[in-house]
Write a protein that binds this DNA or RNA. Structure first.
Lengths: 197, 197
DNA sequence: AATAGAAACGGACCACGGTCCGGTTATGGC
DNA sequence: GCCATAACCGGACCGTGGTCCGTTTCTATT
């Protein structure tokens, strides 16, 4: 059961037209993002492409950030499924250390791939917390399986922090660090944390 | 010599009126931020308070983010001075490990104190890079003095990542973690990294 | 099937960040 | 001290995110 990021999902009784419009808006946003790139997608255009008024878009998604968070949500959900029940070493079945390293590499690449979208989603609605929370929970469980001693929740945060978008972007775009070196450095960090005296 | 974040400083020959206006704008921004809070400070208002036109503000500081970065710059500079030549343990004179821990605690509190301003400054101009770069350099030097083996520049990044504003805010505001526990966790992380086998 | 009322709709409207260009003012050479 | 020139100034203007409210559409009830 993935921690999902319900922003504007079925409340007790969502009217049929509302549901149709929500889908239309998300599909329109997807299409426009794909066609123009995120920062060229304007709310007016999304509304027009979806065939609804601008007011409708804002009522359903609150803000531009909220809409982007909802778009982001889809891929996050399928990634969470891969982590929880996909093939090893990312999914269950591999030794905890292998899973942890696979998790870091996977999250790192996903964060870079969706960097623009994640930035556009900002701290909107629950995205930030729900996604962070899922990752933190997963790392905590793996650290526990590895019998790490100490303040496990805080160590999980420390391991996740270098995977955040701005930090990765700083390294990749400004400092021109190759991805392999970032991966290796993270692996090294994990080992130091796990194998501490 | 602190790494300063010159955004709109004296180029070869800055005209006297331009310099006066720059100071007036910065002072006005300071006053308004203090009086209204950052997100209530509008560019129109800054211009009016400084007694200049809006165009002038944007020519000198490029954008709202740029202005905020320039405001932030002042306190950053004095903090950098404290790190480089202030009293120990933050400044020189204490053992490297003490300095490293003091650095972390100090940076942590400063980031939380200026969280809004740092967010408003965004990745504007050089702020992000210059500030990060200074911190990274300092940590690298201390790790080197501690004779840490491995990829020191990358380890420095890993130690700095948990001190970033969004991550601290997540813990303090959402998870209600007391600052002391965050400090202790960072100390623990540092020790694991430094004393790795 | 008719009706009442709530929920959703949509586009005119607003606010604020950012641009542009005609007018003004400082500065260096004479 | 005066002039030519470059730099600077300022406020009218624009685009886009976000709001508001009169109108329309759905659904539960009878």
């Amino acid at each position: 059961m993935p921690i999902s990021l319900q922003l504007a999902d079925e409340t007790p009784h969502e009217r049929a037209d509302a549901a149709r419009n929500r889908e239309a808006i998300l599909a329109a946003a997807d299409r426009l993002i794909d066609r123009l790139g995120i920062d060229q997608v304007h709310m007016d255009a999304v509304a027009a492409e979806a065939g609804v008024g601008k007011g409708t878009v804002f009522r359903r998604f609150e803000s531009r950030e909220g809409l982007m968070a909802a778009v982001l949500n889809r891929s996050e959900t399928s990634w969470q499924a891969a982590v929880l029940s996909g093939p090893p070493p990312l999914g269950p079945g591999a030794p905890p250390m292998d899973r942890l390293l696979a998790f870091g590499h996977s999250r790192m690449r996903l964060n870079l791939k969706h960097a623009e979208l994640i930035a556009a989603a900002g701290r909107a609605g629950a995205r930030s917390y729900a996604a962070v929370s899922f990752a933190a929970m997963h790392v905590r469980v793996l650290l526990w399986e590895l019998q790490v001693t100490g303040d496990v929740p805080m160590l999980a945060i420390a391991l996740l922090a270098p995977l955040e978008v701005p930090i990765l972007q700083q390294q990749v775009e400004h400092d021109q660090v190759p991805l392999e070196r970032i991966e290796a450095a993270w692996d090294d960090l994990v080992r130091r944390v796990v194998e501490a005296p």
